[in-house]
Amino acid sequence: MDTQTTTTLLVHAIDPARLAAVYDTGTDAHGNRLLRLAATGEGEPLRCCLRFAEPGEQIALISYAPFDHPSVWTEVGPVYIHAARCAGYTPNGRLPEQLSSGPRVLRTYRDDDSMNYEHNTVVTNDADLAPIIERLLAEPDVATVHVRSLAPQCFHYSVKAGSAYAGRPAA
């Protein structure tokens, strides 16, 4: 009997220490004051806890760059977070449920954080992103995948491959 092997996906929301600095100072890392607003509930993805905001929930818009070190691939863009600290995202080896399908842009990066243009992928439909990301992370020259929105290409979260585990027997 064959056993199906699945890759554990190590999903990273905005680093809690970087978020703490934003909440403590009231400004993002680029000097912008927190822009607080009530969520419409029409698709504001929260990068602190990796879910969509509920209508009326207090959220904030900040500028964010996924890389916290010098890199020519450092891009700063707007992202939503809760207006006040939340419990954050608890990794579970899978993609966050509400942000696990397309449409999305999947940007791939090597171990040295240089972008790997060869494997960047555009998902134009509502496909499940997990198998696509698993395939990308199986490439020997892909260490990290950044999941971004399709049109504005705003950062959602990053994913690395964890250890593989044996799943249920394959049919």
Results as ranks from 00 to 15, higher is better:
Ala127Phe: 01
Ala127Thr: 05
Leu136Arg: 07
Ala138Val: 00
Asn120Ser: 02
Glu97His: 12
Ser100Ala: 15
Asn125His: 14
Thr90Arg: 10
Leu99Phe: 09
Leu99Arg: 09
Gln98Thr: 09
Arg135His: 13
Gly102Tyr: 02
Arg104Thr: 00
Gly93Thr: 08
Asn92Leu: 03
Glu139Val: 04
Arg107Tyr: 11
Tyr117Pro: 10
Glu118Ile: 06
Pro140Tyr: 01
Asn120His: 12
Ser100Val: 03
His119Ser: 14
Pro103Tyr: 00
Asp128Tyr: 07
Asp128Val: 08
Ala130Trp: 07
His119Arg: 14
Pro103Gln: 01
Pro103Leu: 05
His119Phe: 09
Ile133Trp: 04
Leu106His: 13
Asp128Pro: 05
Asp113Leu: 15
Ala127Ser: 12
Pro131Glu: 00
Arg135Leu: 03
Pro96Thr: 10
Arg107Met: 13
Thr90Asp: 08
Ser100Glu: 03
Leu95Arg: 03
Leu99Asn: 06
Pro140Met: 04
Ser101Cys: 10
Ser100Gln: 05
Asn125Pro: 04
Val122Gly: 11
Arg135Lys: 08
Pro103Gly: 02
Glu134Ser: 11
Gly88Lys: 02
Gln98Arg: 08
Arg94His: 12
Leu106Met: 12
Gly102His: 01
Glu118Asp: 11
Tyr89Cys: 02
Pro131Lys: 11
Thr90His: 06
Arg94Asp: 12
Asp113Thr: 13
Asn92Gln: 13
Pro96Asn: 07
Pro91Arg: 03
Leu99Cys: 14
Thr121Asp: 10
Leu129Glu: 02
Val142Ala: 09
Tyr89Ile: 02
Gln98Ile: 04
Glu134Leu: 09
Asn116Phe: 08
Gly102Asn: 08
Thr124Ser: 06
Asn116Glu: 12
Ser114His: 07
Leu106Cys: 13
Thr108Asp: 03
Asp126Tyr: 06
Leu95Lys: 02
Arg107His: 14
Asn125Trp: 09
Glu97Cys: 12
Glu139Ser: 03
Ser114Met: 07
Arg135Tyr: 06
Leu136Ile: 10
Thr90Trp: 00
Asp126Trp: 01
Arg104Cys: 08
Thr124Phe: 01
Asn92Val: 06
Ser100Leu: 06
Met115Gly: 06
Leu129Ala: 03
Leu129His: 01
Gly88Ile: 05
Asp111Gln: 15
Tyr89Ala: 00
Ser101Arg: 09
Leu136Asn: 10
Arg104Glu: 04
Met115Cys: 09
Asn116Val: 09
Leu137Val: 01
Ala87Thr: 08
Val123Gln: 04
Glu118Lys: 12
Asn120Asp: 12
Tyr109Asn: 09
Asn125Glu: 11
His119Val: 02
Val122Cys: 11
Tyr117Asn: 11
Val142Pro: 10
Arg107Ala: 15
Pro96His: 10
Val105Glu: 15
Ala138Tyr: 04
Val105Gly: 13
Pro140Thr: 02
Leu129Cys: 00
Asp113Pro: 10
Arg107Leu: 13
Ala127Ile: 01
Pro96Arg: 03
Thr121Pro: 14
Asp141Phe: 05
Asp141Tyr: 08
Ala138Asp: 14
Gly93Val: 02
Ile133Gln: 01
Pro96Phe: 04
Leu106Pro: 13
Tyr89Gln: 05
Ile132Pro: 04
Ser101Leu: 08
